[in-house]
Amino acid sequence: MKSFDLLSTVVDGGCSCKLPAQELAEVLANLPGTPHENLLVNTDHHDDAGVYKLTEEMALIQTTDFFSPLCSDPYEFGQIAAANALSDVYAMGGEVLTALNLAAFPAKIPLTILKEILRGGIEKVKEAGGIIMGGHTIVDDVPKFGLAVTGTVHPAKIITNAAAKPGNVLILTKPIGAGIIMAGHRLNETSDENLQTVLDTMKILNRRGSQIMQQYGVKAATDVTGFGLAGHALKMALASQVTLKISPANLPCFDTAYALVETGCIPGACFRNLDFVEPHCRFEPTTSFNQKMLVLDAQTSGGLLICCPSSSVDAMLLDLKKSGYPFSAVIGEVVEKEEKALVVG
């Protein structure tokens, strides 16, 4: 069972198989909405999840995510896909309540593989303190797995994309460059060890990060996934009507990711994300082509991009590092809205 390579079933895995941002926007535009006074965060904001108020003390967070395999081992794939889906709850400052499995599987592959994928996912949900409520599996040529997740958060403590304030400091909790390393590995240009570091980082839940954000009264954050650091930072800047400045020199990135970009190993997702980001972004002349591709690199189950109140930065960084995010770093700041919503350099 272990010798079956899940990657043999796919071409584009992980969050690289997201629909490109503008195409998604086109599809969603002008669709009928379902406004409601209890809908605290809706799809208009293109936030990480939707939030619905149940009582004065509790709001429900709902989100879903699934994709095709990005690694060889089915159990690891289940773990990563689950962590990725759960991440949106944490980006909103919530805790996980329940989850449903969403799976697609080819008829001709042994079912033991599917079992391993599901086991990986279920164990990750358990680690998050969530309850598995069931799920649904269909037949498909390419395996897919993910979750539909329900989380909870206090209505007054929701962390959104739209509350970034000038003066906030940007903290990123996990390194970037995952997409580049995965592409490099498919070409045998990166070691198994480097790949394993990336996969292990993807499995880390953003749960402690969410709890730390609530401790420090953070109001704005997002998680970094398929649109790359630049894409998700841009969405936050646009929703909050501010400008985010990112300093490439301070970005934590995976070992050898930079060297790989240098050789031209640039996943297609970088160019898709560039199309989305470019009209709203100024890349300063000091930002190299390689750094540009790095900030556009699609991540899977990436870290939290936190808008931290300036007075709490040192304390929050220390707490994050002690809580399982040792590569957390200050990567930029939020300023008053300028001509471009995002500045890199």
Partner: peptide, 10 residues
């Protein structure tokens, strides 16, 4: 850019 170490602090 031969200064990869400057930028990537993993």
């Amino acid at each position: 850019n031969s200064h990869a170490e400057d930028f990537c602090e993993i």
